[in-house]
Amino acid sequence: MQIFVKTLTGKTITLEVEPSDTIENVKAKIQDKEGIPPDQQRLIFAGKQLEDGRTLSDYNIQKESTLHLVLR
């Protein structure tokens, strides 16, 4: 499924993921596309910060959901 990741600069990254993918996994995909190390990434969905060990389905993230990427 496709999800979108919006950065603070207003750029939107499109990722191909599975509901069973972990947040860690998603961060690795963002690193592949954008070169941002996962340890600098914070992903936010519905106002919650997403934890590395959880999966997209844990957070009920469905196709075409938009996550927000904050760098630390």
Rank of each mutant, 00 (worst) to 15 (best):
P38R: 14
K48L: 11
G35Y: 04
K33I: 10
G10Q: 06
N60V: 07
V26K: 00
T12W: 14
D58S: 12
K11E: 11
T66K: 10
Q2M: 14
V26W: 01
T12P: 12
I61W: 01
I30T: 02
I61P: 01
M1E: 03
S65W: 09
A46Q: 15
P37M: 11
S20N: 10
D52H: 12
L71V: 05
L15S: 00
T12S: 10
L71N: 04
I13E: 02
D32L: 13
P19A: 13
E51G: 10
R72Y: 10
V5N: 00
L15C: 02
A46F: 09
D21L: 06
E18W: 04
K27S: 02
T55G: 04
T55E: 12
Q49K: 07
R42H: 15
Q31E: 08
E24A: 13
D32Y: 11
T55D: 11
E51T: 13
M1H: 15
P37T: 09
K29E: 09
M1I: 04
L8R: 15
P37C: 03
D21M: 05
R42F: 12
N25Y: 09
L67R: 01
E24R: 12
E34P: 02
R72F: 04
T14E: 15
Q40Y: 13
L15I: 08
V17M: 12
L67H: 01
H68R: 04
T22A: 07
E16V: 09
I30M: 08
D52P: 09
I23A: 05
H68Q: 04
K48T: 12
Y59Q: 10
Q62I: 08
Q40R: 13
Q49F: 12
D39H: 15
T12V: 08
V70Y: 05
D58L: 06
V26G: 00
A46Y: 08
L67P: 01
Y59H: 15
P37W: 12
S57C: 03
A46N: 05
D52C: 03
K48P: 01
D32K: 09
K11G: 07
P37E: 09
I61K: 00
K6H: 14
L69T: 02
N25D: 13
T66L: 15
R54E: 10
K6D: 14
L56T: 03
K63L: 08
R54A: 14
T9C: 03
Q31D: 12
E64Y: 10
T9P: 13
I3F: 01
Q41R: 02
Q2N: 15
V70D: 04
S20P: 10
L67I: 08
T55M: 04
N60M: 07
M1S: 11
K27V: 03
L71E: 08
I13D: 01
L56A: 03
Q2C: 02
E18K: 09
P37K: 14
T7M: 05
K27F: 04
G53E: 07
R72K: 08
I44D: 05
L67E: 01
A46C: 02
L71I: 11
D52M: 13
H68G: 12
E51R: 14
G35A: 10
V17N: 02
S65Y: 10
V26I: 14
N60T: 09
R54W: 15
G10N: 07
A28D: 07
P38S: 14
S65K: 04
G10C: 03
L69H: 01
E64D: 09
D32N: 08
L43C: 01
R42M: 11
A46H: 06
T22I: 13
S65T: 11
I36A: 09
D52W: 05
F45H: 04
I61S: 01
L50K: 00
K33A: 11
V17E: 01
D21T: 15
L56N: 01
K33M: 13
T14A: 14
E34N: 06
T7C: 02
K6S: 06
Q41E: 02
G35K: 09
G35T: 14
E34C: 02
E51W: 14
K63S: 05
T7G: 08
I36Y: 10
P37Y: 06
L71K: 13
L8F: 14
Q2H: 09
Q41D: 01
K27W: 03
L15N: 00
V17W: 03
V70A: 04
T12K: 13
T7Y: 08
N25A: 10
K6T: 08
P37S: 13
S20Y: 14
Q41P: 01
P37N: 06
V5I: 14
D21G: 15
K33H: 12
D32V: 07
T12R: 05
F4L: 07
T9E: 10
R72I: 04
D39N: 09
K11N: 06
G35L: 04
Q49S: 08
H68L: 05
T7L: 05
A28S: 15
E16R: 15
T22Q: 11
S20T: 13
L50Q: 00
I36F: 13
L71H: 15
P38L: 14
G10F: 06
K48H: 12
E51D: 12
T9Q: 11
L71A: 07
T9W: 14
Q41M: 13
R42G: 06
L50F: 02
D52S: 08
Y59E: 05
P37Q: 09
D39Y: 10
I13H: 10
V26C: 02
I3C: 02
R42D: 08
I3D: 00
P38N: 06
F4R: 05
E34T: 14
N60K: 09
L43T: 01
I61C: 02
D32I: 14
T55P: 04
T14M: 08
M1Q: 15
L43P: 01
I61H: 01
N25H: 07
G53W: 11
G35Q: 06
I61Y: 01
T7N: 04
R54Q: 04
L71D: 05
I36C: 02
V70Q: 05
K27P: 00
E64W: 11
L67T: 02
K6L: 09
I30Y: 03
P38H: 12
A46S: 07
V5E: 00
L71M: 12
D58I: 13
V26F: 03
K27I: 03
V26D: 00
K29S: 10
Y59K: 01
T66F: 07
A46V: 14
G53C: 03
L56I: 15
T14P: 12
V26L: 09
G10Y: 05
V5D: 00
T7F: 04
M1A: 04
M1V: 04
V5H: 00
T66A: 04
V26A: 04
T55Y: 15
K29T: 03
I30R: 00
E64K: 07
K63H: 09
P38I: 14
G35H: 05
M1T: 11
L15M: 14
N25Q: 06
Q40D: 10
D52E: 08
E64N: 10
G35C: 03
G47W: 08
L15V: 03
S57F: 07
E64T: 12
I23C: 02
I30N: 01
Q41N: 03
P37D: 10
F45Y: 14
D32S: 11
S57H: 10
L56M: 07
E24M: 05
K33Y: 14
G47Q: 12
I3Q: 00
K27M: 15
L67A: 02
E34F: 14
L15Y: 03
T7H: 09
K27C: 02
T22K: 08
I23P: 04
L67W: 01
Y59M: 06
G10T: 09
T9K: 06
F45A: 04
I61F: 02
E64C: 02
Q41H: 06
S20K: 06
R54F: 09
V17H: 08
Q41A: 09
Q31M: 06
P19R: 06
K29C: 03
A46L: 06
S20F: 13
I30L: 11
L8D: 05
N25I: 11
